[in-house]
Nucleic acid binder design. Structure first.
Length: 485
DNA sequence: TTTTGAGTTGTTCGA
DNA sequence: GTCGAACAACTCAAA
């Protein structure tokens, strides 16, 4: 064992269980100094948005409490990472810095610089994989290139050995001999000044404990009703693990292992649970990171270069109407309002609102991605980029451009009773299921008693589905026929 | 080496 | 009402 303390630099791995950097440091160091550094400026164009900052605050509070319980207080500092690390090394006499990797392009570059500089200082520096089942550089197709199609990518991932079982939380953490100063969490200013987080507080319990509870809740349905109910925004059928996974309050290895155990104890054959729809969702998370790593320009630019020429039409007014959930299409509006109120939106509805923005309104997908980035609690650069490029048809293995969701049909199919609409668009709550997804077509004798006046209590549709669809297909046609750089 | 078939999440149209 | 075809283009792997 070393005679110096080891710094564990916490980033998007805010947990004690299955934390490779923490486990390694607690074995090797004389003591462990858990550190969190707040410097959003180092995250390039993608510092955490308002919703993410709220979650981060709660999650840090939870980590702080867990570490305090073990007698090893979390050190919180703000400022440039390298400078902060160097001064903490100076104060504490630490001999090593360990962390778990991040995959955002700006942070890969930052971490590389930090690593080299600290090594030149004579520090031992080591990074670990705490966020993915497979590292992006491990997976290649037969020609040695990164995959751009999901199915062969995931098949290749699964062909390798199973991920190692999750690490237990270190049994004991030895605190440094003298206390180190720490910035009070509140001073980071992560929580919004205006108080709009009441619903989020009721909906979520950020932190490692909350993550474990959410996983436990979900497991009982993961192999039975998930396949049927995951598409139903009117039911609580999804895993809701995305924010916990993003902040690393639970690792994909833990989820993988829990699913495996649960399936085996239920006597489910491996072939069956490995092809279960939720298991595949873990694959999409991996695929998103794979793509971001190999194609680092994709948060801003389309993966398919010809889409640079696509005739998007920026429209700040329409964008605002979409953001506020006032498009006149109930499913779109319900989704956008759910997002605003809770920091989360059902996956099926995310696809519908994205399709509506980029296809029916022809607004650049980057505008939608930016809004999701600011408002989603689970905002994740890899997943957000994949999702929007998939929706816009300009990404890897993307939806064909002509696949344009019809929000009315999607509503009638996946929210047949209209319960999701009633919850998030209360001005339509009296509408019968027959008309709730198409109120502008409802006869007067229905609207009246339901206290709905189109254009007054609820907006008229912003565009007509038919003509906006034609316009999108026409724009796409032009893209195909125009040849250019 | 070349060819072939399949590929997360849909809609519309016409038979 | 139901059903298949059309709606693109390209990646990837298997034949």
């Amino acid at each position: 064992m070393s005679t110096t303390p080891y710094i564990v630099w916490f980033r998007l791995d805010l947990r004690l269980t299955d934390n490779p950097a923490l486990s390694a440091a607690s074995k090797a160091g004389a003591s462990v100094i858990p550190l969190f550094i707040w410097d959003p400026g180092e995250e390039g164009k993608w510092p955490p948005g308002a919703a993410s900052r709220w979650w981060l605050h709660q999650s840090l509070a939870s980590l702080q409490a867990e570490l305090a319980r073990r007698g090893t207080p979390l050190v919180i500092r703000s400022g440039p990472a390298l400078e902060t690390l160097r001064s903490l090394v100076h104060e504490s006499g630490a001999g090593a810095v360990y962390w778990n990797r991040r995959y955002e392009p700006a942070l890969i570059a930052r971490d590389q610089k930090v690593k080299e500089a600290l090594q030149q200082d004579g520090m031992q520096v080591q990074s670990f994989n705490g966020a993915l089942l497979r590292e992006p550089w491990e997976i290649r197709n037969k020609t040695g290139n990164p995959f751009q199609v999901f199915t062969p990518f995931w098949k290749t991932c699964l062909a390798g050995p199973d991920p190692l079982p999750p690490l237990p939380a270190p049994a004991t953490l030895r605190p440094p001999s003298s206390p180190l100063s720490s910035t009070p969490l509140a001073q980071l200013g992560l929580e919004p000044r205006i108080h709009w987080t009441a619903t989020m507080r009721q909906t979520w319990m950020p932190g490692e404990v909350g993550a474990a509870a959410e996983l436990k809740r979900f497991l009982s349905t993961a192999f039975t009703s998930y396949g049927d109910s995951r598409d139903r925004p009117d039911a609580n059928g999804t895993s809701r693990l995305s924010p916990f996974l993003h902040f690393g309050e639970i690792s994909p290895r833990q989820v993988f292992a829990a699913m495996k155990n649960h399936a085996e104890s239920a006597g489910l054959p491996a072939s069956e649970w490995r092809s279960s729809q939720f298991h595949t969702e873990l694959g999409w998370r991996e695929f998103a990171h794979h793509l971001l790593f190999h194609f680092p320009h994709t948060p801003d630019s389309p993966l398919r270069p010809e889409f640079q020429r696509f005739p998007w039409r920026s429209n700040p007014e329409w964008l605002k109407i979409w953001q506020r959930g006032m498009t006149g299409y109930p499913l779109v509006d319900a989704g956008m309002r759910q997002l605003w109120a809770t920091g989360w939106m059902h996956n099926r509805v995310r696809m519908v609102v994205a399709s509506f923005l980029v296809k029916n309104l022809l607004i650049p997908w980057q505008d939608g991605a930016a809004w999701f980035w600011d408002t989603l609690l689970d905002a994740d650069l890899a997943s957000n980029t994949l999702g929007w490029q998939w929706s816009a048809g300009c990404g890897a293995d993307a939806a064909p451009f002509f696949r344009i969701f019809n929000p009315v049909l999607q509503g009638e199919k996946f929210d047949p009773q209209g319960d999701y609409i009633r919850k998030w668009v209360p001005e339509l709550s009296r509408m019968p299921a027959r008309w709730i997804h198409r109120p502008w077509e409802a006869p007067r004798e229905i609207l009246g008693p339901c206290k709905v006046t189109m254009g007054s209590t609820y907006p008229e549709p912003l565009v007509t589905l038919f003509s906006s669809r034609e316009r999108a297909l026409d724009a796409y046609q032009k893209l195909k026929t125009s040849k250019g750089p």
